[in-house]
Write a protein that binds this DNA or RNA. Sequence first.
DNA 1: TGGATTACGAAAACTGTTTTCATTTTCGGC
DNA 2: GCCGAAAATGAAAACAGTTTTCGTAATCCA
Lengths: 171, 171
Amino acid sequence: MVPVKKYREVDENLVRQKEAAFADFIQRKGLKTTRQRNTIIATFFRLRGHISVEELLNQVKQVNPRIGYATVYRTLHLLVESSLVEERRFGDGLARYEGHSDVEHHDHMICLECGEIFEFFNPRLEALQESLAEENNFQIFRHRLELYGACKDKEACNRRKARGNTAAGAE
Amino acid sequence: MVPVKKYREVDENLVRQKEAAFADFIQRKGLKTTRQRNTIIATFFRLRGHISVEELLNQVKQVNPRIGYATVYRTLHLLVESSLVEERRFGDGLARYEGHSDVEHHDHMICLECGEIFEFFNPRLEALQESLAEENNFQIFRHRLELYGACKDKEACNRRKARGNTAAGAE
DNA sequence: TGGATTACGAAAACTGTTTTCATTTTCGGC
DNA sequence: GCCGAAAATGAAAACAGTTTTCGTAATCCA
Ligand SMILES: [Mn+2]
Ligand SMILES: [Mn+2]
Ligand SMILES: [Zn+2]
Ligand SMILES: [Zn+2]
């Protein structure tokens, strides 16, 4: 398995690069730069993991309490459209978002006990998918692979469960 | 690629087998046999593909128009709990259900143009997932793999698009 | 067959998300 | 700097799919 690059600390250079890329996107689309959007993306890109709308809004409100749900939703849609962010759905009913500046394409293993999400990437798996698509005369745009199960390390798993992990926290 | 077994016609023996299995499940759980549930499962098991609640209800109502949403939802939950049926979500916002009496475990390729869903199964892919989980000290209970893209056979794809396929129809 | 238990169906409630709409902000041209 | 068209905001309403409630009806075992 190829380990997925992980950042425990926020890489400020990367964040600024992302912010600039989003500004570009906004410009290209003829949209306007706003204080709220800046706050939202600045906050989002400094969060790790798989962030729900509510989690993001809570953080955002600490900077500017007047920002509401609608603007967060709208900004996330723009981030997805700009390809700076990907939407995930792990089956708990909420959309989660992850900036993939710091993690290239990857898939997920989700522990149903403790909520931990492990990220992985394997080139053979990707290649195999391509060859299966080929056989079927099908062209893949994107894919989604999720392995649901449980940690085998029960101590670590229980510890996480105890402190109430959610599906949000990857590593 | 290992082709997934497909039934164009309903296999009445299989359906009756499923009905019996569900009756068993109901019994074991101490629940009651009802006319409505019988109608719903009899209808469901005779449908092919990836069925939404609304599609199922429409069919069911042709047999007994008094049956409502709630009972269909409740019965589908029981079917899933009994492992006779699996719930799918292909990202169009609705849950879809498929009885896997006639199709063993399989994954999906979804054409975003025409809505066609191709089913496939590949042992190497399954094995590879297992070995990746192993490496990660993770035990897989179930998984979900979806390839989103487009048919390369554009004539066939357009034909299907023209007659308004939905994500429901797999082959 | 009585009666505790389970199921039903219509409607209300819920959840996450999107839309509406009145108001405010942005920003290119003057 | 100011104008004004265009875009964005936020509160609230609307929405879609699903779940729950609650009064009534059906099931099924002793
Ligand atoms: Mn991830
Ligand atoms: Mn299928
Ligand atoms: Zn765990
Ligand atoms: Zn197609």
